[in-house]
Design a protein around this nucleic acid. Structure first.
Lengths: 87, 87
DNA sequence: TTGTGACTCTTAGTCCGTC
DNA sequence: AGACGGACTAAGAGTCACA
């Protein structure tokens, strides 16, 4: 529980996870998003509080819709692509 | 097109739309989210660039998951509650 | 009931490093 | 390859009076 205790950590972990799926290093990924590497490090560690435009840049770097960044509960990629609706 | 031209306006419009569905005034809604009315006004108009924690507070005020704030293409509420999966 | 400009204070965000 | 710090500039947080 206490997942609402740190939305920053929650998002940071999700971003890190998604970045690793791309195979990029933190630095290369930050560069692709157009933001500073040390700042990206802080975001992934959950110590930064990024703005909407930064989040937008990150979602762009991941080639994902912004809403997908915030799907913490699921495995994201799998859930998006399989859409398990048949029960 | 050019929807990526202003993510702030896009989100602001979505928040305003979602707030109006709740029947709350800007002031009452801002109060529920724990932020200032004039600040909320700026967000809805797309002139502010809110941080993750502000967005988190807004999603809480709407009783929605953060990811739902960013579902711009759909009618949101309807899509969420009916989950049209059978086809 | 909301938009808006102006304002102070804090922090987002960059750039330089070291470990 | 990534954590982490210092110093810095730009911009957001938060509030007010007034349209």
């Amino acid at each position: 529980m206490e997942k609402t205790g740190s939305i920053k950590k929650l998002l940071g972990n999700r971003i890190r996870e998604l970045r690793r799926e791309t195979g990029l290093s933190q630095e290369d990924f930050a560069d692709k998003c157009g933001i500073d590497r040390s700042y990206m490090s802080g975001i992934e560690r959950g110590v930064r509080n990024p703005t909407l435009e930064i989040l937008w840049a990150i979602s762009g770097g991941l080639d994902l819709d912004l809403s997908h960044l915030f799907m913490f509960e699921t495995n994201t990629k799998e859930e998006i692509e399989t859409t398990p609706c048949d029960s």
